[in-house]
Amino acid sequence: MEIDLNRIITLSLFAATLRMATPVLLATLGGIFSSQTGIFHVGLEGLLDIGAFFAVVGSVATGSPWGGLVYAIVACSIASLIFAFVHLELRANEIIVGLALNIFATGMTNFLLFAVLGATGYYQSPLLKGFSVVQIPVIKDIPVINELLSGHFPLVYIAFFMVIVVYLVLYRTPFGFHIRAVGENIDAAKAIGINPKRIKYAGLLIAGVFCALGGSFMSLSYLNLFSEGISAGRGWLALAAINFGLGRPIPALVACLIFGFADALALRLQQFGLPSQIVLMLPYIVTFLVLGASAIQRETRKRNASRLKVGHEHA
């Protein structure tokens, strides 16, 4: 079989990469906040679902995608607070609570899809107002670059802008310092009077808001519809990205771009009847290998360090 690479690898493929990376990136950025406070957030998948659904509800109710965004943020915040309450106040295991949240989210959105919007399976309607693309004034006139960077949906720009914001918040503000202190050494944080519980609440809440953005992007940009299981594993992918970057925003961004590229490429391959699944597997395989490699690096460094010190002490 002859494959024309020029038809597969095009500029629009890279534009699609940015688009595909956006929801995962948003969930990843949110998850970074909770993971930096020391919480392994399995519930991102469910939060994306909730965000996507309530964005649709809000858009229909208010007639504006921005109204939908507000609805999504409120819904995801409430869900996150419930998660936080059950985990932090009732001391339930975060993973089990996360799984419960996922199940609950699927059940709830699917049910409300019928009960509120009167649809089963999926909802699509002219009442549903999605975001419209943004043309960036100067860039839109530059050839090549415009195809890549201009004409995206607003949440795409917001997502990539947020990478910088998240980086600055985590590594340059007192709040970010406190978050990282709680996650890395909770005793150190407690000893100087930081309230770890409050920080964790904040981390989870921020994760919820970011998932609301990610969910809204899925249902109100590109395709304006909500379908059952719309998040389709992007929450898990976000979890992989967080782990890939060990909780740091920049490496996580790289991971999201790889994932987005794999997604976009898979879509393209599908159109040509080529096995897209192998490409889609890549993000997970890469994450698996990165986890292994970083652990190997860590352990061997430990071993080497001990070997060095032997000589030192005997000398």
Binding site: T173, P174, H178, N185, A188, I192, I194
Partner: peptide
């Protein structure tokens, strides 16, 4: 010791009472 491993010693010392400029540490 109650230090945060990935912070600098300076950052550890001022943690919780960070000097700020326009909201940033």
């Amino acid at each position: 010791f109650k230090l945060v491993p990935s912070f600098t010693l300076g950052q550890n010392i001022v943690l919780g009472m960070e000097p700020q400029r326009m909201g940033f540490v």
